[in-house]
Amino acid sequence: MLPVSFSTHYITLDNKMTTHTGIATTAKGKVDVIQVPTTHPGAGEVRIKTEYSSTMPYDVYVVDIGFSVQSYPTVLGLCPAGTIVEVGEGVSELKVGDRVTAVAISGPASKGLQEFSVLPATLCARIPDEMSFAAASSIPDNYITAFFTIFDQLKLPFPESFPATTSPPQASVPILVFGGGSLAGQYMIQVLHISGYKNIITTASEKHHAYLRSLGVAHAFDYRSPTLAADITKAVGGDGKVKIAIDPIAAKSTLGVIGEVIDPKGTVAALLPIKEGSSIAISSAADIHFNIPTEWNLLPKDVKFIPVGTALGYLNNAFLRDNAMSKILPDLLQRGLIKPSSVLLMDQGSLKERAEKGLDLLRNNKVSGEKIVVKMT
């Protein structure tokens, strides 16, 4: 097992540094079990004993092409869920013993695929007693992405309450979520719906349509339909053009269809990175883009295009950073206004085998509409 160092606030026993187990990429294309120094939380932070953590396409990019890796080894996982075992100075809303889920975007010590995660209390959400840790770990990354995309990047008005008691100015404007069956798409739909938007249109495999309607979709279309653009145009009515489009898939083909249905002065938000195909398997950093390559861009010239990168932008939005997870999400979960994703649980074999299987399923497009969650203990 390889060692990795994160912090100087180590926990020691008999003058020996204590460590815990984590899953990390140790070189490009390599995943292994490592030993991570166990650290105390600083001011405003908590330490979580992680029971389950989800894995996601971002982890595949980190492993396969070294995406965003500063040095090796790099611990994986963005959504730990477990029990708080220690709180730092100034933390008042959380206490030892609280059951929480968290979004691990505050540095290496926060990552999810390790026994203990240390992260700001504002990035944690208390979960209902009846909610499993596995289900809870399926929520945070796509939840904050939806909040950031809708309220920061698209600048739609933040409702006074959830569900919204007054209709927003664009409540009836057609909003397209391309790829509503994706996990990010499901949260975009849920957040739009509880914010008062009534004319949500989506594309997804037909098997997902009934569930997406239950989340608040007005119209659902099969993304493989040869008449997809015409179907969307008909559903929109009027001039047949969508005013706002959100693309969680962000591929050449999805942006091409959006280009056919978006209003010439509309707005398109696409989740980074942008890829040529919808597959997560890529061979190099050259296969991903942070804006639309000129030769792919079929959007009308006056369309406002917003490439959405969540982590840094979310942390820079003080209101979302301090409220969306710690204050808003617990209430939404308690009232059933935000539903966890369906979980595909990795709980067989060694920890390394469970993590590698989850990454392989993502890499090879073997999962649809489910969150891969790794049992840590």
Rank of each mutant, 00 (worst) to 15 (best):
Q70N: 14
A235C: 04
L2S: 14
I144Y: 03
T227D: 15
D302W: 06
S342W: 09
L215Y: 07
G196H: 06
K111N: 15
L154V: 04
N15K: 12
T19Q: 11
A220D: 07
V36G: 07
A245D: 01
A250Q: 08
F162P: 00
L123K: 06
S117E: 09
L299D: 01
R363C: 08
N316F: 11
Y52G: 00
V46R: 05
L156M: 10
P41H: 11
K111F: 12
E206A: 15
F178V: 04
K366P: 03
V343I: 11
G309P: 02
S132D: 08
S253G: 11
F6I: 11
A136F: 09
I338H: 04
S7D: 15
Q334P: 05
V242A: 01
N316D: 12
G179H: 08
T55D: 04
L2N: 14
D360A: 15
L228Q: 06
R126I: 12
S350M: 09
I200V: 07
F148P: 02
D360V: 14
F178G: 02
T19H: 13
M56Q: 10
H289K: 12
H219L: 08
L359V: 10
P163F: 04
M17W: 06
K304P: 06
A270F: 00
G42A: 14
K155E: 15
P174L: 09
I194N: 00
D222E: 13
L215N: 08
G44W: 05
A171F: 06
D360M: 14
P157Q: 11
L337D: 11
R321V: 03
L298E: 13
N364L: 14
T8A: 14
G29S: 11
I292G: 03
T50P: 01
V63P: 02
L119R: 04
L154Q: 08
A270V: 00
T55I: 15
S117Y: 06
H193A: 13
V268N: 01
S279V: 08
G277N: 15
Y72H: 13
P41E: 02
D231C: 01
G180W: 11
A204N: 04
L333K: 03
D347E: 15
G112Y: 07
L183Q: 04
I11T: 05
A286W: 06
F290K: 04
S278T: 12
K366R: 13
L192W: 02
G107C: 08
K30F: 12
I249L: 13
L333P: 03
H219S: 14
G185H: 01
T122E: 14
P168Q: 08
I282Q: 05
D14R: 07
S278V: 13
M56H: 12
L94Y: 03
L312V: 14
K198S: 10
T39Q: 11
L361H: 04
R126V: 11
D14K: 09
A109Y: 05
T18D: 06
I175Y: 01
T122I: 13
F305Q: 05
P248S: 03
P226L: 11
K301N: 13
E51P: 02
E130N: 15
A245S: 12
G240K: 06
G107I: 04
P169M: 05
L228W: 09
K155W: 06
E295L: 08
I194P: 00
Y197C: 02
E86C: 09
T39N: 14
T310L: 10
V100Y: 01
V118D: 11
T26N: 10
S350R: 07
A146M: 04
I232H: 02
V367N: 05
D129Y: 05
G179V: 08
L333Y: 02
P57V: 07
L271Q: 00
V257W: 10
L123V: 07
